[in-house]
Design a binder for these strands. Structure first.
Lengths: 363, 363
DNA sequence: TCTTGGCACTCGATTCTACCGAGTGCCAAC
DNA sequence: GTTGGCACTCGGTAGAATCGAGTGCCAAGA
């Protein structure tokens, strides 16, 4: 893409003005408005001719002749790429985030769900929080608990504090002692290995135990693969989408898409994998979301990718603010997950959790 | 309410015709349409005068002079109360339900989430599934697993297959042996008691163990109270609401309400407690949902209430169908939960799950 | 050559009017 | 009590007039 950066400064300024104005007002922007914008000292006629050129180059479009201009996806893209400083949250919002992460407690799932609420509240957009995959976390404990006559439940605790469970049809009556024996065998082979890499291990003396262990192992590997491909995702504030679009059809289509967890997960993954932090309109390739933009920020623990947070809004969303919010929340969340596990208890929580150096200029 | 049942048969027939027609078309219904309806053999003029009377009595209303009539909440209420047979699902839908419950597997949460999807797909309305409270289920296993240095996670398995977990800040370094000892102490005091009724139990020899046990016990009672008051609720197909209303504001308000789990839970609870299966308009007392109707069906296991399923749609929803769907799904779910725990595995599952006697005339 | 003010023109949005028709309320006759 | 007839209401639609924000073009000026 040769022309992404080589707009002359004036054109860039005009484009930026159009985008900002349109983001703010949702109304097509006319040359007069641009002329009035700070930092632009040419007449509206000049601006008009520049706009013609910007339109020819695909950055702007007109809803109809004799209306102002609207940015195209390409226009937004330029605007986003060229954002100099990453945008800053207001002090009130920043404080809200800090306070949230100081006080939040409870289980991981609950925390992530709350985080998605925070994010959507901060920005007024719908938010998405992709829970970290557990495939790399080591197993801390494996246990089988009998339930009723021929069913047991397998409970696995991972080093990151996640608890995975799965019920197992035993096929025949199995006494508790056997389950206990099986549990300790499993514990021996699985402990401190990651979920996906639990090796078979030799046979014990008791065939009943071996049989149960085998069942459990296949359940474990199922768990591993599930944990890997369909991570949970928490969607916050979908109702905000109803504010963003006035066509009720659009709202419906977008909401319906958000309801499909798989789609949301892969959307976030795709965008992350392409190393983007913003995907605008058709860039992400999900057709029903073509009037939306997605902003993502990675969450990482010990340098390893561990999920993501994201925002979904109209293409005319407030990118600087959304980017700032996603990044700040992503960083806080990374820190939080970096701590071995959340300190429970509803009392005022420990305050050393506050991040020491906020990596702000990290681009 | 003296006049709820004492409409003369013709008025009742007219009211019913208006409601049905309006449910189908969403258009105000005029006297001519009613006259054409089956089972009514009087002229439109007669119907007009009856309608005037129905309007005076509060069953119908006019959006404006010279338009047809629309049912009021009271009108819908009459219609619902007077429904003779509870409405039947089409064979295709019925089969869909059976097949769903034959094939569904996996964990409880996942199953409930899927159930809510099923329900909203069957009816095209938003659905709600209230997960059964665990407060009465007996504890099957309690275990503490150390994570990092000073944090442990408490994992409780209940007889109904639910797994509850909570992280515990230990305050100081605790060696694994102590956790193991504490786990077995806990297991001894908690096993086969319901979560809420775990008694203290005497002291052991080791003060470190006692301390950990005490921490765990307070976590247990927290768990019990949480499990009691904020049960999880699964909302399915909220995007359907965008079809039901054309005012985008209404959609937003309703969606926003649905996002608040607590509200949804208490909505369902309230309606159930009042012994209703339908709450129309303002009957449920949740102002933002005043243009909605709620249909609920209880889920019970062994005669004990164990959650509920519900539907949320516009007041002009298809009550017979919604009631039928909610009831059928509620019954299937009750059966399913009655089975000790779901038989895992994607193979064709047991088929005795099919309900034997469908309590049809249960009013 | 670039910029600018001027000007004619476009076209969506708004307002007004006319009109249609579904629906009502009333009434006299059955 | 029921019915057909009739005058009337009033939202919705269609067309005409108007408004105004905004454009494209052009000739004059820097």
């Amino acid at each position: 893409m040769p022309d992404t950066q080589d707009l002359d400064p004036r054109k860039a300024a005009i484009l930026e003005a159009v985008v900002s104005e349109y983001i703010g007002t949702a109304q097509p922007v006319g040359s007069h408005h641009v002329a009035r914008a700070a930092g632009i000292n040419v007449s509206s006629a000049t601006i008009r001719s520049e706009m013609v050129s910007l339109e020819r180059e695909g950055y702007l479009t007109q809803p109809h002749t004799s209306a102002g201009r609207i940015p195209t996806d390409k226009g937004y893209r330029f605007f986003v790429d060229q954002l100099s400083e990453p945008g800053v949250l207001g002090p009130a919002q920043r404080q809200k985030v800090s306070r949230f992460f100081d006080q939040v407690h409870g289980e991981m799932e609950e925390m992530l769900e709350r985080t998605s609420g925070l994010l959507s509240e901060l920005t007024s957009y719908a938010s998405m929080v992709l829970s970290p995959g557990h495939d790399s976390a080591a197993v801390r404990s494996v246990q089988m608990v009998g339930l009723g006559s021929r069913v047991a439940i397998l409970v696995v605790v991972l080093a990151d504090g996640a608890v995975e469970k799965r019920s197992i049809e035993l096929g025949e009556e199995v006494p508790d002692e056997v389950l206990v024996a099986a549990s300790s065998r499993l514990q021996a082979v699985a402990h401190s290995h990651p979920l996906g890499a639990v090796s078979a291990g030799g046979a014990s003396g008791d065939p009943r135990v071996d049989r149960v262990v085998a069942l459990a192992q296949s359940a474990l590997s199922e768990l591993a693969s599930e944990a890997h491909d369909h991570d949970r995702v928490f969607v916050g504030g979908p109702s905000r989408l109803a504010d963003a679009f006035d066509a009720v059809d659009t709202v419906r289509a977008v909401l319906a898409t958000l309801e499909q967890q798989l789609v949301v997960v892969s959307l976030l993954r795709d965008v992350l994998e392409r190393g983007l932090s913003v995907a605008i309109g058709t860039e992400h390739g999900y057709e029903p979301l073509s009037s939306c933009a997605v902003v993502v920020a990675p969450v990482s623990v010990d340098g390893q990718s561990a999920g993501a947070v994201g925002l979904l809004g109209p293409t005319r969303m407030n990118y600087p603010q959304a980017l700032a919010a996603a990044r700040v929340v992503g960083e806080h969340l990374s820190h939080r997950l970096g701590t071995p596990v959340d300190p429970g208890g509803p009392e005022r929580a420990v305050s050393e959790v506050r991040p020491r150096r906020r990596a702000n200029g990290s681009r």
